[in-house]
Design a protein around this nucleic acid. Structure first.
Lengths: 195, 195, 195, 195
DNA sequence: AATGAATGAGGATTCATTCAT
DNA sequence: GATGAATGAATCCTCATTCAT
């Protein structure tokens, strides 16, 4: 079935040069859309927000899983950067982590998504990422906490993520701190990475 | 003699008395379907599982929100019943709560509901319900508990809910218990109220 | 994702009564569409021609295979009816068969469809059907032919099918007769079933 | 020294001489793709298999019809070459023809092309090609043959093509031979011209 | 009051085709 | 002349919702 010829003018095509730019725009758009509407949001909305055609979305991310994974990967990378930064404190790392958690509440749902085994690719990927987050945090963890084993720390991060809700940034931060305190981790004021 | 069989062929028309039975069947079916496939599961699946036509579903629950709310309401009611039971302890109530967390994706979703727009009806409802859960728990809170503050209690429930992930009910239950332990809480036997 | 409410009026819904009528209309439409545009024609075109919504098409035929199979089944049934009719001759049966072959050239393609194994459900089904055609024909086959074994007859039908092309009914009939003659089968004038 | 390697990384730009090589690679790729996946296969697959960009495909073949026609043309040319070869017999020519039938869905499709609209360009072309095939065969037709009449010969080729089904080339070849035998024709060794 | 078929909008995905580099 | 990314129309398919019976 050939496509019928279209009448409309064809919008600009910036050529292959746009590829990298498009991918970045897609990741940003995906983060926003997923955060705003959940992980089941229409993929077409991502393409639209990124200002690209549907095809580009599929070129870069063959399925929803790939798009989600790309956003997660980017988030984790930023946490790791925060941890690797000169003189980073636990609060610094936590700040970046908290920002991502607060900004992308949808990703919490990620961990509840695949009951039936579908999407388990995401699940597996999430495990790897959560270990990277754990590593980034542990190196800065203050003394006197109870999170002696790796599972506990990962679990704690998941638990804290649930606390990070609220209409304002301040409230979300306060809740994050309260949550850590409940877990026996005392942490100073949270600063956004680079902020 | 009332026939209780629900699996039978076509109930045809059992008269007005069927209405209540249908509603109950729908709530049960909804809980199962939501637990198995998440809150986005097709509504038609609920009607099918309940053994009724689509129309009946719509008669009782005009939209998805109503169905979700009915399941949550039922869950909360059971927590309250556990709290009101003769000689109930904090651990007992927590056990019922934990059972629901582990059993029902809908119940977990309650604590992570969408912010904006569509589901905000659910969100508002969830707040009310979460207060009822908090009240049920608080009435049994032992002294000298780390969760002595009501806010902390709600926070703790939210945090545990985030830990409740995993493909099987058993795994989810184990994680819930581990989460409570991290918070310094020992939970009683985990089971549905009256189960 | 709930659907947004539609403004337009909803066309008539004739209720369940329409089910049988719709199915028949779909089979007829499918035969026509497949004949005109090949087996890869858009399924939506079938629904449109049948005057039903897309959903109805999918209710009756969950995938393309099912729609194709239904048309084939119907075709074969008509051949069998012709064979079972009182006093039917080889030419009678052949007439019906030829009509179907001529009308649905697309079905010839059926036999070449599944190189890669996809659609092999259709292939398997087609084998069963071709045996039924073989049975219907064999019982009326005139003496003196060379098609002694079942494979040969099925093969012969496939071969004759390729001959049944041409702009007019007459030409298609003549070609069918010529094809049979090349295979050593002498057959009298072809009459349409019931014609 | 001409490099024949086609599998190499990126040919970059070998200058104008690449055009002819590309065209040849495209025809070969098209034959394979059409044979493997049918005439509806994505054109991009052809470009990929040929190791060229999509643009090159469009430079040489502005649309699908052109690509199909090129493959057919090449096939027919080989039949003609077989016919023109020194000492060629009817069986030899038929062998080459049969090879093409068994190898290429496109070649078979030639004889069953769509009636209306879209593909009618191909249909017309196919008629011309089928006359060329007929001419190539007729020049070698042995005496006393049942297929002494030219129309019968064309008809026979069409009939055999309909028999050429099956998932593997071997099976298709066997069926082709069986079909010729039913028509009273013994075919020589089946092979590509020069193969 | 219940049933379940029908409707049709919306979201996923694929490819033909163009065009910047 | 070649490359391959981008575009977006068209198709597939899935449900939410209505409504004749």
């Amino acid at each position: 079935m050939e496509h019928t010829e279209q009448e409309g003018r064809r919008p600009a095509n910036d050529g292959p040069k746009a590829a990298a730019r498009n991918r970045a725009a897609l990741v940003i758009a995906a983060r926003e859309i997923f955060a705003e509407h959940g992980l089941e949001a229409p993929l077409s909305a991502i393409a639209r927000r990124a200002g690209v055609g549907q095809g580009v979305l599929y070129r870069h991310f063959p399925d929803r899983t790939a798009a989600v994974a790309a956003v997660l990967e980017e988030n984790v990378r930023q946490v790791e950067q925060a941890a690797d930064a000169e003189g980073a404190t636990f609060a610094d790392v936590l700040g970046v982590l908290t920002w991502h958690l607060a900004e992308s509440a949808a990703f919490i749902g990620l961990l509840h998504a695949d009951r039936a085994g579908s999407r388990s690719g995401i699940r597996a990927h999430a495990l790897v990422l959560s270990e990277r987050v754990e590593r980034a945090l542990r190196s800065h963890l203050p003394d006197g906490h109870r999170l002696s084993d790796a599972n506990d720390l990962v679990l704690a991060v998941a638990m804290v993520s649930a606390a990070v809700i609220g209409p304002t940034r301040e409230e979300r931060e306060l809740r994050a701190l309260a949550a850590w305190r409940l877990l026996g981790v005392e942490v100073g004021p949270v600063r956004a990475f680079g902020g």
